[in-house]
């Protein structure tokens, strides 16, 4: 997070008691928005939202449908599905980022939010790593080496690339083998993931 603004969390649940509990737990550290149903959730969803806590079973619009609507909006937010039971499908193939099984407690919710925020930062760095590599390649194609050495723009990009590289190498310390899979899944275009989610029976 480059901004000092608190991260924006949108909590969606038809259980107003639970939303009040979220207020107590989270409102000091996060900019918390709450919604008791799908329509209200979509009205409160915008680019500022970093994390959505989404109840899977709601009367008017199911969490799954709402999730689809959120993804259709193309808002860059992370979604934690709050479920009564653990989903039996492979989490990698689901269009949400993580899930929390009820009954939930404050520390679990906080850890979940922080993990999703850290993951968003990490993915931003991966995206930038590519963007800088591509810019460098473009400059390398257009300009001879002698000109590159003298180019401040090129040097700045090289510095930024090295900075990203070393930050990623540090976070790489915690890249466990499951992260290999989830990190690649997050880099894949959404249509490919949807395809996989639509045909889980095709998996070997």
């Amino acid at each position: 997070m480059t901004t000092t603004e608190p991260p924006v969390v949108l909590a969606v649940d038809d259980d107003e008691k639970l939303l009040e509990t979220y207020e107590i737990w989270l409102s000091a550290d996060y900019d918390l928005r709450t919604a008791t149903g799908g329509e209200e959730a979509l009205a409160k969803l915008d680019e500022a939202v970093d994390v959505v806590l989404l109840d899977r079973l709601m009367p008017d619009l199911s969490g799954d449908d709402l999730l689809e609507a959120i993804r259709d909006r193309d808002v860059d937010c992370r979604v934690a599905m709050v479920t009564a039971v653990e989903p039996d499908l492979d989490i990698v193939e689901m269009p949400f980022d993580t899930y929390v099984a009820k009954a939930i407690d404050e520390s679990t919710i906080r850890e979940t939010i922080e993990r999703l925020l850290a993951r968003a930062d990490h993915d931003d760095r991966l995206r930038e790593h590519y963007a800088v590599a591509e810019k460098l390649a473009t400059l390398e194609r257009r300009k001879p080496e002698s000109e590159l050495a003298a180019s401040a723009e090129y040097q700045d990009l090289i510095d930024r690339f090295e900075e990203l590289d070393s930050t990623l190498a540090d976070t790489g310390e915690s890249l466990d083998r499951d992260d290999i899979v989830s990190e690649i899944a997050r880099a894949e275009p959404a249509d490919r993931i949807d395809e996989a989610a639509d045909h889980p029976e095709d998996k070997p």
Partner: peptide, 9 residues
């Protein structure tokens, strides 16, 4: 971009 990130990971 997707291939790049795949390789990076």
């Amino acid at each position: 971009e997707t291939v790049y990130r795949f390789c990076q990971t």
